[in-house]
Nucleic acid binder design. Structure first.
Lengths: 129, 129
DNA sequence: ATGGGGGTTCCAGCCACAGGAAGGTCAAGG
DNA sequence: CCTTGACCTTCCTGTGGCTGGAACCCCCAT
């Protein structure tokens, strides 16, 4: 399979697949003409990576998770620890975003949104008077 | 005021302040020795920028908001539109993150986290079998 | 004179790719 | 046989919003 087919099958852009090879996440074979040739195991790894990325894991986490996935003697505790740390970061981000949304929401509600210059949003950003 | 004092007063790193000058958000004066000299209006702008950034506005949004802030004949509708668009992006991000958190949370709960290799998290990433 | 704590510029790096140029390869159709 | 067009290749640049560091200058106190 060439990269285009793999892109179709995995949903990952060809650019991304090339990038994953460059950073040694996958190692597809090469045909005589220089084209990458992907085996089923490569595609399987790419799907793994796609799902892990969709859950927001960093590339380095993905690398570790992939290694654990292929290590039959792994301890699930290692996987769980990585996942929990990541969950913590997600929660932190969510609460940051919620704080922003709350503040911003109040300001927006307070703003007339007409053609006059008076604006609580700018007043707040400018230091509340 | 030199950049160090301004950094202390605004809470912004000196590096960031220099960067904001580089991208023309502020234009501090220069002393004979080449040091930046900040006026109160520069500090006011920096505080504005700090608060806008803390609400998650992009630099380009900040630039626009600052221009509106200084435009006495602005229409608050313009400000509100920018804020609402930004709010939309925040909400989108929050819901992405919540989806991630939910999936990840379930997987973590299902994982024993001991020294055995069996792991629902990896099973899911690997394609659920 | 020297030491230390400011300041300056410029360059590299971060993350995870995306866009695009310049060129090689392959199968189908005329 | 030649062309066309869809692939593929590598390489370089850019993204956002800074951050770190090198190499150097400036000023004040000892």
């Amino acid at each position: 399979m060439n990269i285009g087919d793999v892109a179709n099958r995995t949903g990952l852009p060809a650019k991304t697949i090339r990038y994953y090879e460059e950073i040694n996440l996958i190692k597809p074979l090469r045909d005589a003409n220089g084209y990458r040739r992907f085996r089923e195991q490569d595609i399987h790894k790419l799907n793994f990576l796609g799902r892990a990325r969709a859950l927001g894991f960093t590339i380095e986490d993905c690398r570790t998770l992939l290694a654990l996935y292929e290590d039959e003697s792994r301890a699930s505790a290692d996987v769980k620890r990585i996942a929990r740390e990541h969950l913590g970061q997600i929660d932190a981000k969510i609460s940051d975003l919620r704080a922003m949304r709350d503040t911003l929401g109040h300001l927006i509600d307070a703003c007339a949104g007409d053609d006059r210059p008076d604006c609580p949003i700018l007043r707040d950003l400018g230091g509340k008077t």
